[in-house]
């Protein structure tokens, strides 16, 4: 079974800096980690490999420092890692990111399953997984909390919904995004770390992928951030105390005074 796990490197801290001109995140110089939801994706990939055999390839798009996150994925046990990195990819929104990843996956070639974390903790959009599946023209299921079975070219998964869960079977190749309930990610091993340190991680550029410059990076992004701001604090409420009767009387008086009623 050939598994591709897409990961994103995200800032480790909530104190992110914003580029005031483009209103995008400045990633350089900020301590970075693998997006926590993507750790569940890596872990699930490794567990599927342990159960069914095959390989786990980890794929990411971003600046060269993302190599560190890919090495961490290798130290957890992934077989291969690929980085898509080019100035032309910078400033991408979810659509341009999904496009670039889809070109990377096309270059990797065949695969059975793509696994993504449900969303990234910085952008919180949860869009890249589904967009990527659409571009690759494969079925996808989001918010997977359990894989029940993989057999006969089909996968059966349980997907979390607000009301409960759905059990879905669909044909492979396909894509799933996973939630944290699916597993507990492993820590790296020393042997894994040593292997990861020596591993060669190919870096594919726009030229290697043959991407359309109109579809990548800031240029290929139909959405852009116009303003980043902290919402203004609304005035604090008032809490009435005392007997219920008194409180109700006070509330009614206040509603009348402010002409709400």
């Amino acid at each position: 079974m050939k598994i591709i796990v897409c990961i994103k490197q995200v800032p480790d801290t909530t104190e992110v800096k914003i580029n005031k001109e483009t209103n995008t995140l400045i990633r350089e110089g900020v301590a970075s980690v693998i997006n926590p939801f993507d750790l569940y994706a890596i872990e699930e990939g490794l567990r599927l490999r342990e159960a069914h055999g095959g390989t786990v390839t980890v794929l990411s798009m971003g600046p060269m420092q993302v190599i560190d996150s890919l090495r961490e994925a290798l130290s957890m046990g992934a077989d291969e890692a690929v980085l898509l990195s080019d100035r032309a990819f910078a400033g991408a929104d979810t659509l341009a990111t999904a496009y670039t990843l889809s070109k990377g996956i096309e270059k990797i070639g065949s695969y059975d399953l793509i696994i993504c974390g449900k969303q990234a903790i910085d952008g919180d959009t949860a869009q890249v997984g589904p967009e990527l599946a659409e571009m690759l023209e494969i079925p996808h299921v989001t918010y997977v909390r359990r894989i029940h079975e993989i057999a006969g070219g089909q996968i059966t998964v349980e997907r979390m919904t607000e009301e409960g869960s759905e059990k879905i079977r669909f044909p492979l190749p396909g894509l799933i995004t996973v939630v944290k309930e699916i597993n507990e990610p492993r820590l790296p091993s020393i042997k894994g770390k040593m292997r990861a340190k020596k591993a060669e991680i190919p870096v594919w550029s726009a030229g290697d992928l043959g991407t359309d410059p109109e579809k990548t990076g800031l240029k290929g992004s139909p959405t852009w951030v116009t303003k980043v701001f902290t919402p203004e604090q609304k005035g604090g409420g008032e809490i009435f105390e005392g007997e219920v009767g008194e409180q109700v009387a006070k509330l009614v008086r206040m509603l009348r005074e402010t002409k709400i009623v």
Partner: peptide
């Protein structure tokens, strides 16, 4: 050395997290 640092760091992480 490099390996010793890796060992120390991983043991530290396990101690803290697990």
């Amino acid at each position: 050395n490099e390996v010793q640092l890796e060992i120390k760091e991983l043991a530290h992480r396990i101690a803290e997290e697990k």
